[in-house]
Amino acid sequence: MIEIRGLYKNYITAQGSLTALSNINLNIKEGEIYGIIGPSGAGKSTMIRTLNLLEVPDRGSIMINGEEITALNKKELRERRKKIGMIFQHFNLLSSRTVRGNISFPMEIAGVPDAEREEKVEKLMELVGLSDRADHYPSELSGGQKQRVGIARALSNDPEILLSDEATSSLDPESTDSILKLLKKIRDELNLTIVLITHEMDVIKKVCDRVAVMEEGQIVEEGKVIDIFVNPQQPVTRRFIKTVIDYNLPEGLNITQKGRLVRVSFKGESTHKPLISLLIKKYNIDANILYGKIDEIQGIPFGTLILDLEGSDESIDEALEFIGQLGLAVEVLTDEQSNSI
């Protein structure tokens, strides 16, 4: 659906050249919700804005449905943009138009006939649950309602792709959840491909199928959301995961570490295997559970255990290998990490 190859973008600023994107490669499949997360200034907005060429990359290729969009002329690009909806953190609605007028706006631009437009507006207002607010102005709506208008507006020309730049970042948790549910619903009903940018791991956890983690203009990690949660590779990714899954032990608890401290993460079926008893029986080691938590990501159970393994070095090594073979992610915690868990 969307194929990005070797994308680069520099900004020339008063302080010199700034690399906003550096060798970005991504494949986004049709019908998936693809998340991009990263700290502030990582280049997320720059990245998503290249997908409709609001930002023109210096180098690289962006193919949408096999069409190289960086090669389009102005007119072709405008036509292309009509099939790419976009929603924004600050909604960017026209204050001079009502809900109805705002949703109608992209269709006016595309030259859709009046009757067809009106019908579509009614349908979209129903889809996002705002039919009773049709003649209200944006200033009379809550943040969540404004974003619903934004979504309806973005859908009005039947796009194939919806781009979302921090669409929930100015909303309270409740509105955030309802907007995320709405995004999921429209993906399911309209088979839309959604690319969403966020700096909240919770958003990724709740709606995304796959995620890319960005840092300093680069994608440092990428994969299925559940896999990233179970087995994060990069420190920045771990930091983000920590914001939604709290590994911290209660302060009053005094751990006296005796053996080797490991974190075991597991997902899906493997949650049902009797791990601890196997370890004890097969390898003759002691496994103390210091911490355990089971969570779920979009219906898939997923858990974390922090174990203190006691036994001979070889048997612990063998045991760790065995855990790996079971399809569980193991990570031996360094002293530093064990202090911070």
Binding site: R81, F88, S95, A110
Partner: peptide
């Protein structure tokens, strides 16, 4: 942002 939204619509 409002102008940008319009640009994003073509």
């Amino acid at each position: 942002g409002v102008i940008e939204a319009a640009r994003s619509m073509g």
